[in-house]
């Protein structure tokens, strides 16, 4: 049986991608951002997911204003890198997992979530920047990726509650897939930012920290937040944080916060990143008896993930 082992959220600021592509990651400004993901890279290298589902939004690359699907699932075998106006980012094309994607589509649609399916789709920085942050810049991405593009460009995006429930349906779909696969789900975008109008530059760290706290412990509270509050408090474009709730809905109710990072700014945006791990049944597997005797169960799981809770704030 396939299972979701963890969820990762991360901002997908295009300037982060540009810093990578232009070899500027060593500059102090960017170092501050990239350092925050060093432990995350170690963590995911240990977890070794078989598949990642990446919830992201397209920024006028694959979708224009001609068609605006609310939820679009990538069912293709490969997703080319979009040309966003400066040539495609020099990152590997994304390999899909058509078989699992088709299974998710079937399960989720029969669960009353009317997805759009994309057998041909290019992916932009919204998807590739988080992959870079977690996997660095390899020649090939280490595992297949299933893109789930969410409309957050045209108002209204789906509600936080709808996103959370879609996450629930994805969880159910994955758990009914017969092959043994370890899945990590990404929620991307955010955190607070506004890049349009006279109010551009808005950042609300207080909102962001509360959002991160609730994401771990009380996501149901976030599912009741109206779009108006996101836009007022976290900026017009900050509403894209609803995508994080798909990730959260796909996890168990109780999760361990493995890691958290927050910094302001990256270009115009507050960068937020969190790793949440399901309290897996891994502890039922024979662990060393000594370890079992020494530590309470949750500690072992955290140790198994190779991380203690880490909070870095700047």
């Amino acid at each position: 049986m396939a299972r979701i082992v963890a969820g990762v959220t991360s901002s997908h600021v295009p300037a982060i991608g540009a810093a990578i592509d232009n070899h500027r990651t060593g500059e102090p400004y960017w170092q501050r951002v990239f350092e925050g993901f060093e432990r995350s890279k170690e963590w995911i290298a240990k977890v070794k997911p078989d598949v990642c589902i990446v919830v992201y939004n397209d920024h006028a690359s694959a979708f224009s204003v001609e068609m605006i699907p609310t939820f679009a699932l990538g069912t293709a075998a490969e997703f080319p890198i979009a040309d966003e106006g400066w040539g495609p980012r020099p990152v590997p094309a994304v390999q899909g997992h058509p078989e699992l994607a088709a299974h998710i589509a079937q399960s989720v649609i029969l669960d009353e979530f009317d997805l759009t399916l994309c057998n041909k789709m290019e992916v932009d920085h919204g998807l590739t920047v988080p992959l870079n942050l977690m996997f660095g810049t390899p020649k090939q991405w280490p595992c297949p990726v299933i893109p789930l593009a969410v409309n957050v460009v045209m108002y209204p995006p789906p509600t936080g509650h709808r996103c959370f429930m879609l996450g629930r349906a994805i969880k159910k779909a994955i758990e009914s897939y017969p092959k043994d696969l370890k899945v990590v789900i990404f929620g991307t975008g955010g955190m607070s930012h506004q890049i349009s109008g006279q109010r551009a530059g808005l950042i609300n760290s207080k909102f962001d920290h509360a959002f991160l706290d609730n994401l771990t412990k009380n996501p149901k509270k976030l599912t009741r937040m109206p779009h108006l509050e996101y836009m007022r408090e976290a900026g017009a474009e900050g509403v894209e944080m609803v995508m994080w709730l798909i990730m959260r809905g796909a996890l168990d109710d109780n999760v361990d916060e493995v890691y958290r990072f927050y910094t302001v700014p990256a270009s115009n945006t507050a960068v937020g990143h969190i790793i949440l791990a399901n309290r897996t049944k891994a502890s039922k597997k024979p662990a060393s008896k000594k370890a079992v005797a020494r530590k309470p169960a949750t500690k072992i799981k955290r140790a198994a993930a190779g991380q203690k809770i880490q909070r870095i704030r700047s």
Binding site: S192, A200, G201, L202, I203, N204, S205, P265, N268
Partner: peptide, 9 residues
């Protein structure tokens, strides 16, 4: 403005 933490809400 951004380096100082952005526009306050």
């Amino acid at each position: 403005l951004m380096l100082r933490g952005g526009r306050p809400v």
